[in-house]
């Protein structure tokens, strides 16, 4: 008998399979928010923190998919374009 797992099971399985990588991603997100808070009222420093976080995210994506053996040029572009979109949107607010 075939059973279909729920979406939450699938997500949990993915997180468990790559627990260290997702932990690193989550930690980097928290560090980014911490720096945004520390640099309140200093938009240029907040923009630098944003740039570093976006760059880290793209590198994370490439590394994650390399270890997952699912790396493809399309996937690399996906992370780069989402990162670029975030940078440009936040630039409108910070610069």
């Amino acid at each position: 008998m075939l059973t279909k797992r729920s979406i939450t099971h699938k997500v949990k399985d993915d997180l468990h399979a790559h627990v260290l990588e997702y932990l690193l991603l989550f930690t980097s997100a928290m560090i980014f928010l911490l720096f945004l808070s520390l640099f309140r009222g200093q938009p240029s420093k907040q923009f630098i923190a944003t740039s570093v976080f976006v760059l880290y995210y793209i590198v994370w994506g490439i590394t994650h998919h390399t270890r997952d053996q699912s790396l493809h040029l399309k996937i690399v572009f996906e992370y780069i374009l989402i990162g670029a979109l975030a940078m440009i949107v936040l630039r409108a607010l910070l610069v």
């Binding site: 993915d14 997100a29 928010l33 994370w60 998919h65 996906e78 992370y79 989402i82």
Partner: peptide
């Protein structure tokens, strides 16, 4: 494709930011 969960974490962080 890229990992939607990772993208969700990224975008949610930016919204909080």
């Amino acid at each position: 494709t890229g990992k939607n969960i990772a993208h969700v974490i990224f975008i949610a962080t930016l919204i909080i930011g």
